[in-house]
């Protein structure tokens, strides 16, 4: 269990570094996508540890809607949000 937490935390931290330091807006958008993916995994792990399957709904909402923000950033860079 500790190994899982360390792996998830390390991945989240690396993506977070790219989010803060990222040279361009596109780098930050990709880093945001990565962090939401890793966070979804962590939410599933929390639902497993607490033993309540209804907490999986939160992970479902995350995975359904997290790409919308990245899509909006892409459309903005493209010039579609004016």
């Amino acid at each position: 269990m500790i190994i899982l937490f360390v792996l998830i935390g390390g991945g989240l931290f690396l993506a977070f570094l790219r989010l803060i330091l990222g040279a361009k807006a596109a780098d930050r958008a990709v880093a945001l996508d990565t962090t939401t993916l890793i966070t979804t995994v962590f939410l599933v792990l929390v639902a497993f540890l607490q033993g309540r399957s209804m907490l999986l709904d939160v992970a479902l909402v995350y995975s359904v809607l997290s790409f919308l923000g990245v899509l909006a950033v892409a459309r903005y860079i493209d010039g579609g949000l004016r």
Binding site: D57, V61, L65, L68, L71, A72, L81
Partner: peptide
């Protein structure tokens, strides 16, 4: 019965319309 209700469900439906407009 499970996490949810009117406010979060309404926000999810609104994001579907947002996807249409994007």
């Amino acid at each position: 019965l499970s996490p949810g209700g009117g406010f979060p469900g309404g926000a999810v439906v609104a994001s579907a319309f947002l996807l249409v407009m994007l």
